[in-house]
């Protein structure tokens, strides 16, 4: 896919609450070490101290109870576990307590097989930004409202550098939020199994300076901030928006999930191609199975534009 595979920022803590989650993790880690050693050290010690050669049969003692000890090894671990429960709870609180929408930027996320799409609220000019990668200003609350199309499956929007994740469920809107104080680019992975290209469903979050974000957001550029706008035909835009590229390559012969569409115009006429988009199960090319490509209920004009793009590249 066009997201190049480089690990970005997994081991950084790029959202404000990441430190709370990490703190809870490390408290857990050290308590676990203590609890674990409280079992393992005596085990090794007894295995050595009472080893076969060392013990005469007469010296074996059937100790079966010791109330004080038993109370201790019930209550102390219980107390430690309650500490862990508490930190699990507080770290959830910071993750899940949404800021007010009036003080945040709301972005709508759509996850579908196998691509992500971010849609912003309209800007002053009424223009709606749509992008594959997410661009957000530094030091700002961002709320993600996430969903998947009804005929799709569950995904999960996982940002390791932010320590956050939430499922993206067809027919529901789930939410998560973050606030990043660190400029940078961070990977987003799909963490809920969704089929063939589950492990290619990446995107990125770009945390950029506020001014840069404002300038971009209030403009009508169809690409991300700092990117050169290339003139795109309507067909190509639809092709990108609908996630066709997640399953078809068009510049190369590579078979992704569906067949490559390179040179498809030479093989099929427009009617066939229209059908292939609106009712994909009607004709299934050899070596592929029906039911994989979802039917796209698009207006006729859009379908025509897509067919033009596939046949002429424009």
């Amino acid at each position: 896919m066009d997201v190049n595979n480089t690990l970005q920022g997994f081991n950084t803590m790029a959202a404000t609450f990441a430190k709370d989650v990490d703190q809870a993790f490390w408290i857990n880690f050290w308590i676990s070490v203590i609890l674990g050693l409280s079992v393992i050290i005596p085990m090794f010690y007894f295995a050595w101290k009472y080893r076969e050669k060392n013990v005469k049969d007469e010296d074996i003692e059937n100790v079966t109870h010791n109330t004080a000890l038993e109370i201790a090894w019930t209550l102390i671990p219980t107390a430690m576990l309650m500490v862990l429960f508490y930190y699990g709870y507080t770290s959830m609180q910071v993750l899940r307590t949404m800021p007010a929408e009036s003080e945040s930027i709301v972005v709508h996320v759509e996850g579908k097989k196998w691509s992500w799409k971010h849609t912003y609220e309209a800007n002053k000019n009424g223009f709606v930004h749509k992008s594959k990668e997410l661009y957000v200003p530094k030091d700002t609350n961002i709320i993600l409202k996430m969903t998947a199309p009804l005929n799709d499956v569950i995904h999960a929007y996982f940002v390791p550098a932010f320590r956050m994740k939430e499922d993206v469920v067809p027919g529901r809107v789930t939410k998560q939020w973050f606030h990043s104080e660190k400029l940078g680019t961070y990977d987003v992975e799909c963490a809920e199994y969704c089929g063939t290209r589950h492990s290619d469903m990446y995107t990125k979050i770009n945390v950029i300076p506020k001014a840069e974000y404002e300038a971009w957001f209030e403009g009508n550029s169809k690409v991300g901030p700092g990117e050169k706008e290339v003139e795109k035909s309507k067909g190509q835009e639809l092709y990108d928006d609908n996630g066709c590229a997640g399953c078809h390559s068009i510049d190369t012969d590579a078979t992704l999930v569906g067949p490559s569409l390179k040179g498809i115009g030479a093989k099929h006429d427009a009617t066939y191609l229209k059908d292939a988009i609106v009712t994909p199960d009607k004709d299934v090319p050899e070596g592929f199975t029906a039911g994989v490509m979802p039917p796209f209920a698009l207006p006729d004009a859009d379908v025509d534009a897509l067919v033009d793009y596939m046949t002429t590249g424009k």
Partner: peptide, 23 residues
């Protein structure tokens, strides 16, 4: 099993599991 059990405790902690779930 001590390791298996104690790492289970990690992911019983809600906030931490939100990061570790499905990894």
């Amino acid at each position: 099993f001590t390791i298996g059990g104690l790492t289970g405790v990690t992911i019983a902690m809600i906030g931490v599991d939100i990061h570790l779930q499905d990894t």
